[in-house]
Amino acid sequence: MEMLRAIAIGLPLTVLVTILALMIGTVVALPIVAGLRSRNRLVWLMSRGLVDLLRGIPPVVWLFILYYGVSIGAIRLTALQAGVLGLGVVAAAYLAEIFRGAISSIPKGQWEASSALGFHRATVWSLIIGPQTARAVVPAYTTFAIGLLKDSSIASSIGVAEIVFMSSQYARQSGEGIMVFFVAAGVYILLSVPLGLLSRHLDIKMRKAVAR
């Protein structure tokens, strides 16, 4: 019972870190996508460089840098802030690539029809390209979200008391070793399977409506 209590205490932080990092990632990804699609060489190069930098360094290193290395004036990031921010910006790089791929999968004819009809740019994005991109992005986005759910355990390395942190603390104190990690694994599966099911359900539903 002590074991379950430890995991139950860690659970909210796992969910919180995942959701916040996903939100940061999604929002920050948008300007990066714009940069990756830019015809301005300099803007493109900077965005490309940013994505490669964010993706090229292991997330755990980003967390260490943000947690131990960053101090803005007298302010230092808490473990939770550093964890969310670090996983968030790394997520932004991956999501930017996912979004970029989905946008370029939209047939050229959709842009041409929009131009020929005389739509404004904002209309094209919000009503033509955006909704079709959202549909195309669902499978890759949820796959990424499931990955992020598990990667949130990286935050345990800087002391965020999420599931893995609580589990290893329990293992050390009780001397029961491996058992608590099996239970933790079960909890991760219980969290990710419904996400996967929801994704497939959404995907099939949308495909039915717009199958080409």
Partner: peptide
Amino acid sequence: FQHFNLFPH
């Protein structure tokens, strides 16, 4: 257009 280019959604 040759390929209609209707909005599928």
